[in-house]
Each structure stands twice: as C-alpha cells, then as structure tokens.
Design a protein around this nucleic acid. Sequence first.
DNA 1: CTGTTAGCGCCTTCAG
DNA 2: CTGAAGGCGCTAACAG
Lengths: 365, 365
Amino acid sequence: MTVTLVDVAARARVSPATVSRVLNGNYPVAAATRERVLRAVDELDYVLNGPASSLAAAASDLIGILVDDIADPFFGIIAGAAQTSIGDGVSGRAGGGKLAVVCNTGGSAERELTCLTLLQRQRPAAVILAGGALEDPRHIAATTAKLAKLAACGTAVVLCGRPPLPGGPAVATLTFDHRGGSRRLTEHLIALGHRRIGYVAGPPDRTTTRQRLEGHRAALAGARIGGSEGAGGVEGVGADREGLTVYCTYERGSGYEAARELLSHDPGLTAIVAADDTVALGVCAALREKGLRVPEDVSVAGFDDLPFSADAVPALTTVRLPLHEVGRRAGRLAVGAERPPPGGVETIDAVLVPRASTAPPPRVL
Amino acid sequence: MTVTLVDVAARARVSPATVSRVLNGNYPVAAATRERVLRAVDELDYVLNGPASSLAAAASDLIGILVDDIADPFFGIIAGAAQTSIGDGVSGRAGGGKLAVVCNTGGSAERELTCLTLLQRQRPAAVILAGGALEDPRHIAATTAKLAKLAACGTAVVLCGRPPLPGGPAVATLTFDHRGGSRRLTEHLIALGHRRIGYVAGPPDRTTTRQRLEGHRAALAGARIGGSEGAGGVEGVGADREGLTVYCTYERGSGYEAARELLSHDPGLTAIVAADDTVALGVCAALREKGLRVPEDVSVAGFDDLPFSADAVPALTTVRLPLHEVGRRAGRLAVGAERPPPGGVETIDAVLVPRASTAPPPRVL
DNA sequence: CTGTTAGCGCCTTCAG
DNA sequence: CTGAAGGCGCTAACAG
C-alpha cells in the first residue's frame, strides 16, 4: 500500500541500498544515479519510514525538549528558539532533518519521568531539559539514572536553565545566574531606600526558586536587613517566620493571592519582589485593588523580562534572562552544531533591568 | 548492550511473544504470568524499543501537535491542554502512553509541510493542526494532500482553530466563530458611539485574519459605516483604501507600529480593534506614547482573551476563545476518547468580554 | 561507486 | 492461555 524504499529502487533501477545512501547522503553516490533516485522519490512521493530507519540505524532523528509548562512564555521562548535553531539545519530533501518536539511535564516529577521514558523509547538523538529542576533527592536520583541511560544509548543530553547533575551524564549545561540576578535586584530596591521587602517565591523545592531566594537573602544580609535569612535556607511552603516570604506557582492568580497574603502579614511593605514577571503582574493587580499605587506606594519587581513586561503599566523592573539566545544555543549543542563550553557548564548572566515599577519608598528613612 | 524483549522473556521464563502481550495488554495472559513478566521488566529496567515496535505494528504512539508559534500563549494554551488531556490516559506502566509532542512551524508554509513530513515518517497515531491556516491555494492543496496521505496510513487528523478542509481527510474539526465574535466586538464599539474605527488585522492570507476582518466589516456594514468593506474582501498587505485597516504579525511590536501607522492616516480615530490581545497591548503602548489615553481618548480592543488581558491597565475588552477547553477536546478527539461532533465539524463560540479599555468616544455624535 | 546479504527488536499470525 | 516462526522497511557491513 504505502511506497517503500524498494519501490523507489525499482523505479530508479538501482538497489535499495543505493537509495538509502542517497537519502542519507553520507556515502558517495554518482551524481547521475543520485538524480535518478531523487526523481523517483519525488515521483513516488516517497516518505522514509522512520521506525524502520531508526530500528536499523539504532538511532532516530527525534530531539525532545522537556518543559514544565508550554503555555508559559518562559518555556515557550526557550523551546521555540531551540526548535528553530535545530530546524534550520534541515536540508529540505528526504534526508537530514531532525525533528524537534516539545513535551510538557506540567511541573510534575512523575510526568517528567514518564515523558523521559516515552522519549527514551524513541531512541532520540538528543534531549533538552529546560527550566529549573525539582530538588527532591529521590527525583534527582531517578532523573540522573534515566539520563545516564539515555546518554549510554547515544542520546545527547543538554541541560538548560538548571544546575549540572552530580553524576553529570550531560553533554552540556547552560545554567542561569539566578542568584546573582536576584541579588542585584534586591540590592537595587535597597539602594532605593526600601527596608520592608516582601518576597513572592516560586514553587518550593525547585532549583530556580531556591537560587533566587538565596540571592534575595544575600542582598538583605549584605545590607544587614531582615532576619528571615536564618540558617535554614528555603523554608517550607507558606510563609517564613516573618511572613515576608510566601510561595506560589508561576501564575498570575497565584501572585495575586500571594500579594494579598503578604499585605495581610505586613501592611507596611514598601516593595514586593516576585518569582517572575507573570507573578509580578498578579501582585500589581492585588495592589491596585487595595488602592495602592505602583510604584508610589509599593514598588514591584519581576524576573525573566518576558516580552509583556516592557509594556506593562508601569513598565516592570525585572531581571533579564537571554531566553531566546539560550534556547538557540541549547538546540545547537543538542545537534552538535556547537561545542560544549569548557567543563561542560556555562553560567548565563542575569542582568538587572530597572524600569518604572520600582521607585523610592513613600518615606525614605 | 541494551536490554530487549528477549532478555525480559528469559528472566520471566516465558516466550518473547508473551512479554509483548502483557506489555500491550490487548490479549489474555494469566495473572501469574503477567506478574512475573512485569517484575522482570522492572528488575531489568526494560524500556520498549519504540522504532522496533512501531515498525512491526505499523503504527507509533506518537501524537504530533503543530503550532505556528509556541512562544505565543494562544498556541501554548491549546497545545498544553491537548498534551495534558492525552497524557492523562497514560497507564503508568510500560504499555499504553501516547507521547504528545508539539512542533513549531513558525507560521511558515514551507516549515509546516516539512514538519508534517517529518512527523509522517514516524507514522504518528494522530496529528493535530492548531490555529488558523494559510489561504494560499497551492499550500492548501499541498497540505490537504499530505493530510490525506497521513489519514490513509491510519493517522487521525484533528483540525483545531481552522476551517475544515475541502476534501476533508480530517477526523474532526473544531473551528472558532471568529467572524461572529469579531462582529459582536465591533458592534459593541459602534453601540458605544464610535464611528471612526481603526483595524489592525493579523498576517494576511490566513483564515483567522480573514474571518475576523469579515466580522468587523459586517458590523460596519450593518451600521452603514465606512466604505472599506468593498466587494474585495481582504485587501493586500498594508492599508486599505481608507487607511483604516493595516496588517501586522501577532507581536506586540507589530501592533505598536500598526497603531502609529493608523494614527498617521487618520488622527481622528476614536477606537482601534486589534488582531489579538498581544497586538492590542502594542497598540496601547503606541497610544500612550502619543499622549492619548485609553479609553478616554481612544478605545482599544483585542481578541482571544489571553491570561494577561484581564490584568492589563486598563483591562482589555476582548473576545474570549475557550482555548483550554478546545485544546483538551482536540487531544481527546486525537486519541479517540471522544467522538467527533456530528458532521465532523463543530464551531466554537467566541464571546464578547467588555472591559475597561473600551468606552464612549470623547464626543459622541 | 554499486549490489548482496543479514539482521535491528518487536508484533502477529498460526499451532498447540 | 502460551510458544514458534516470519517479516515489517531499512541500514550496514561485505563483496565486487
């Protein structure tokens, strides 16, 4: 029913092996023969049978990109850039052409592992894990083991936006300097004169959340402000001892709730730092609803510098992560178009972008 | 090196065929035997070889979701919902488990076809095409042919957010009532008293753009306003005769430019309807920069009701598309968890959501 | 440069 | 309910 390699070979009057060779392009074939084969391919509208090809070659042209939430621009931008950089290598014809696909884990450890297994079945050429990692030790172990297996089967593993793995089966890791960016952000607020600064952290037990919180607390400690940076590091879900830190998910509504909670704990806050820009928008909404102006009454800052942040009213002070650039590089690393950084790990700078949503507090001390 | 079905069979002291049967679950196997096999699978940490399985079964468990731009929340939401609804069916174990993956076309006809071909190689269980379609006849023909071929090989084709195809190889089509929603939106503006209404259309030659523009013009015609709705339907790129319609891409920056162009053509505009919410934000930015207030001086409306629209300042009047719901249903249709609507086509309502960004014009006539 | 020969790992009749 | 055998469509050594 469907046309196979043999059909093409027959039409081009060559052996199946020859057809395979011109399609894969990695073997010398006479120009005339190639022409004939290509013509036959076109005439028959032949499409390679991926499974058969992958079985025989013990490798597929699939590249998986794992993200927490595809509807979140943070991941959308990284994934889109990675896909584009991978797709650019397509040679148009039947040959070449890696297929970059993105899979959604929903931020669930279980689904992340499931996705990895499902991908593993396909014997993918590469896998890119985007975004922060869960810090649950069991999950880390499971993930590491899975990735090691993938790597053992020839799959290139690229980590993007998370710290390198201990046992490091990864080809390369591009990790963000969340800590530094976060620290500079809070320092900016402190320099403006703020002393009571609320913090809306991301989901607990994630590398991104922890690193950003650490940066924030380092800034406070550097200025001898606040007592919430106890020896304990990140505290459990909910609020810390002073009620100045609450946790939420990367959603606008979650930020809205979080801001209300912060305000109820300490109505005297003059600034709120949010886990990311989306959350910051929710924070702004809650503030507005309470009749508080941004930044006159309360300053608000986000993180990531997502596209809409520049257009928000007021424009959001945030920390820029070069998501597009990093996604592009992750894609190139995955296909081997770029060599891994020395040591396999590169830390990407996070730069402070001061805009209109932060200003001195109502009454500078 | 890697563990195969045969290894599992040996360990469980059964034949490979039996292992295959318990993994696929679609054949009677004694409970005790199944247990033994499952244990062996776990102990050996066996992972099915997808290519081999797909080759033998002539079908894979891959489901492809094609989107124009994964970084655009419109697609992100649909794709995410589809993936989730598909993933929910996972039976945890080695069996079951479709892998839903999303592919980016970047809105390019060529890449869309390339992606389809790459997917076609995998012999996917289903393909979901999300978002509006290009109206270029050649591309429609090519796409239709490709989808017909996919369908002929047993791939379920689901169209989501675009009109059904003429030759209809699709299992099901969920299409939006862009026209109706758009018409109601412009009627809302007219009822408010607006007469000079600028229109920032989406990319030309796309079903979505055309349908929304048609709705807009139908509203104008219904109110005997404007002469731009000539017999010609959508005009070429750029501005129409009166300069009241300009085209742009679904990006904030593009909306910004478009608004400036509209204003330069007709500074007397009292309202601007944008192709979507993202574009509307760009329009607002341009207006603000010109010293025009929204909605006091100029009303602005978007489309889609993306999450950030409710939080914009002012909150954006828009037309809500149930993206999440539609994505979920597309996923269910793809896996056969839901029966296709009668006739295979269902039109999804687009409901007007009036918010703060629209108000009567400065001077009602 | 090209043809021939074996499988890749699994599913699926067919027997038992 | 379980085992044995054949082949899915392609690639990768080998020859020539």
